[in-house]
Design a protein around this nucleic acid. Structure first.
Lengths: 153, 153
DNA sequence: CATGAAACGGCAGCTTG
DNA sequence: CAAGCTGCCGTTTCATG
């Protein structure tokens, strides 16, 4: 799909504030509100914009404990398999296949240490997991939602 | 601040769709639209809801390359220092202090390998960084925005 | 551009500490 | 008695065919 400079600016504005009105965005990109809506509809249909979400302070909602878990998997494990398994656990907020020693890196978020431990045990119980190495998050310094700030090209 | 069950449901609905109308949310939580708005305003003022953002397909916008970088820091480095430094680099989408060997874990997202390399060099040039260990992301299996799915309490 | 819907502010009633 | 939360209704702004 074709994304021009105006699309980029609209995306940036929506990443900054997903509840901005089309009219407001239109003012900033020198377009009418309906024109903006058409572009947003098109970007959504094309999958460029996947959706709109609220960014919540995890501590305020009670999910205060995080960890990154390196997963070592059995020889014939596919990324798809790992992805499907990861999605089964609601504590998983991110999962990636990676280069290096481990096969995958899983980002967990739980209510507390015991919840985290329980999730970890469930994850390690997946048949393809041969071993794992956990790293507890002590503090969150940065966490950007969306795609990342400003220069999106 | 006090967050009751209705707040939780409103938050969950906004995480699922940040552009949902107050009337629509009100219908689902058995409240009027103005009542919902007041709660959302209160949650935003309290910092529980940090904002609303569009979730964008990174590939579509050109940021296709990711890495996790373990940072080893000089003896007297504070989390605040690391956070401030991390925020200076637009490629940083997440940063955490962690237990284990490394002092911090930084999540980078860039346009391509050379952009990633350039960002990595910039990051390693921070005065407090003594060494680093990078792990390139081969594929993204899961990535949830917001605070994580469903059971938020 | 025109219509219908949504957001937003003010006001009054109800419950709770 | 004070404070907080709610619903209703006004006007203004926005969404959308």
């Amino acid at each position: 799909m074709q994304i021009d400079a105006v699309d980029q600016r609209i995306i940036a504005l929506l990443v900054a504030d997903a509840r901005a009105s089309y009219a407001d965005i239109g003012t900033r990109v020198s377009l009418s509100a309906p024109a903006v809506k058409r572009r947003v509809d098109r970007l959504r249909a094309a999958g460029v914009i996947r959706g709109f979400t609220a960014v919540v302070d995890p501590a305020a909602v009670g999910w205060t404990t995080e960890a990154f878990v390196e997963l070592f998997c059995a020889g014939r494990t596919t990324p798809t398999q790992i992805g499907v398994a990861a999605r089964r656990h609601p504590e998983v907020v991110g999962a990636y296949t990676v280069s290096g020693e481990a096969d995958a890196l899983v980002h967990l978020r739980a209510a507390d240490i015991s919840h985290l431990e329980e999730a970890l045990e469930r994850l390690r119980a997946e048949p393809f997991v041969t071993s794992s190495r956990s790293t507890i998050v002590l503090s969150r310094l940065v966490e950007s939602p969306g795609v990342g700030p400003s220069h999106t090209g």
